[in-house]
Write a protein that binds this DNA or RNA. Structure first.
Lengths: 339, 339
DNA sequence: CTGAAAGCGCTTACAG
DNA sequence: CTGAAAGCGCTTACAG
């Protein structure tokens, strides 16, 4: 915060207005406690000098930064971008600023980033998914940093969480896929380790198989990073067996986009030769050819609700209420009934 | 930053280690100025107490926050997401944290956000594009906030900028389009007002027309927000004239994706009935059917370079060097020669 | 190499 | 409604 050496301070304003610094501070922070006459005098002094409160001093005296930290796996994935945008907008209307860091889906980086944002004075923290080392939650509890988990919902989570049930959502899609006559199913999953969303989604497929009398162990599973290229390469493995699956269920829309691109390169028609499904319903899903069958997730709503709840936790020092949001199936051209 | 009332302070550490607070501070900030024996004693006291420096106090005393602010139009657009991710990664390796705000492409919101991030103590600022009110630059200069512009390069910019020449890049694409035999050209542009990138790209198309002896005034121009839906709706207008254009050149890939979706809905084949081009070469470009001809922009490199330069400006109090990055054409299936 | 002490610029009980 | 003053927890010349 290197500023012109001449940056005016509260003292300057006080002198100019002929009042004490306490009064100036009150005019700025709780104007109703100052009589109108004084207030206008002070405010015009503020205006005249172009005074802006010094951030560090204010933080130190008030013991809060009005800053909320968020650590997401990556900003590049549209899945987080949309929700994070809504989160930031909502924070802004509430007077908070967003501090962002990314973990690249790596627990040890996430841990480092958590500590870094806490050291930077984040008043509260948004994390993606609930599965992580208990030590981190201890650390956060010890420092009394309100922490909210999003993008996942688990009734038994130790942390308040706002999100949807990844596992049940994926099972619902699987039930539908099976109802359409598919039974040779392959899954392209994101990296499972340390990722409760990816694990939940894969479990959801197995639940669906089991639920419909199919053997979950017969499921072909290919694990790959959540990238288009990953989806494309995984597709090759997914269809490599002697009997080609009739449908490839992907852990998210990005993987599905990669899978569909690869299908096209192999001259396989989607959905005539093979069906493909995704998860998330990001914008991409509708511009693919054919449009992608997927699970719709209310990203913006989730981001907004998370901001509201987290600010409440920070300001009222409350524990935070979990909230389960509903997902829904979007049936589009990439999934076709087996006649 | 509400923490457990028991959060240890420098004083606690000093007492525990039997030294002064000055020595503890030195151990943490310039360890080489403390003799080893003392240092290890202090460090183990730090460890024992689980001491973390108080952010506000440190900021106030040191007069900097090690925080860099970035204000982008929106996080939702993959165009910024990729570059911002790289920007954040590079900042992190240099010990800085990223503060993010978004402007929704609205100058008045951007101005508010600039002031907000400055008030939050951003040591430096990253802004997108150079065109904005001179008053803002005055404001930033007055507070001595190092400011770097990215996503655009203009040799005559008053601010240091790291980016590419939007206008020349689009002209290069236009030259190519015309060389392929197209002359009935429509443009789907982003909103022009206050957006130098959008203006530059549109000018680039006109430059190309002029350069090839065509009348720039004959260009059909439809202006719409940078969203898929905007591109889809604009497509209808772009082809509404008596003679259908043979190519629709879009201000970015997102608009192009919308245009292509709409073409499909109208049963127009791309590229047989009409060609489409984009700008940015985000991942989406390669998964469209057919793949999109576009202008490749080195987003990650731009983000990294911007971080390096901005940190240099902050730490060395230097003016900042502009850097022009090269874009390149990606010719793919959505653009077809007119035989 | 280390310490005593001033100072950073606010906020906030506590008085009046 | 307003002011005097303590205090927030660091950093950093300045001495020694």
């Amino acid at each position: 915060m290197p500023r012109a050496r001449s940056a005016p301070t509260l003292d300057d304003v006080a002198r100019q207005a002929g009042v004490s610094t306490a009064t100036v501070s009150r005019c700025l922070n709780s104007p109703e406690r100052v009589v109108e006459r004084t207030r206008t005098r002070v405010l015009s002094a503020v205006e005249e000098l172009g005074y802006t409160p010094n951030f560090g001093a204010r933080v130190m005296a008030a013991r809060r930064t009005f800053t909320i930290g968020a650590i997401i796996p990556t900003m590049e994935n549209a899945i987080f971008a949309r929700g994070l945008q809504a989160f930031q907008e909502e924070l802004h209307t509430r007077g908070y600023t967003l501090l962002v860091a990314s973990s690249a889906y790596r627990p040890e980086i996430e841990e480092e980033q958590i500590k870094s944002l806490v050291a930077r004075g984040a008043d509260g923290l948004l994390l993606i998914g609930y599965a992580r080392d208990a030590g981190i939650y201890d650390y956060l509890r010890q420092r009394a940093i309100p922490t909210l988990v999003a993008w996942a919902f688990a009734p038994d989570s130790t942390q308040p969480c706002i999100g949807f049930d990844n596992r049940a959502s994926m099972q619902a899609l699987t039930d539908k896929v099976i109802a359409m006559g598919h039974s040779r199913i392959a899954a392209i999953s994101g990296i499972l380790e340390g990722n409760d969303r990816a694990q939940g989604r894969l479990q959801g497929i197995k639940d669906g198989l089991r639920h419909n009398g199919l053997d979950p162990d017969s499921l072909i599973v290919v694990e790959t990073p959540y990238e288009i290229e990953g989806g494309a390469q995984a597709f090759d493995q997914a269809i490599a067996g002697k009997e080609r699956p009739t449908v490839v269920m992907c852990g998210n829309d990005v993987l599905a986009a990669g899978a569909m691109r690869r299908a096209r390169e192999l001259n396989l028609s989607v959905p005539d030769d093979i069906s493909v499904t995704g998860f998330d319903d990001i914008e991409l899903a509708r511009i693919l050819t054919p449009p992608l069958t997927t699970v719709h997730v209310p990203h913006r709503k989730m981001g907004r609700r998370a901001a509201v709840e987290l600010v409440k936790m920070v300001e009222q020092d409350s524990v935070g209420l979990s909230e389960q949001l509903q997902s829904s199936l979007k049936l589009r051209g990439s999934l076709k009934p087996l006649t």
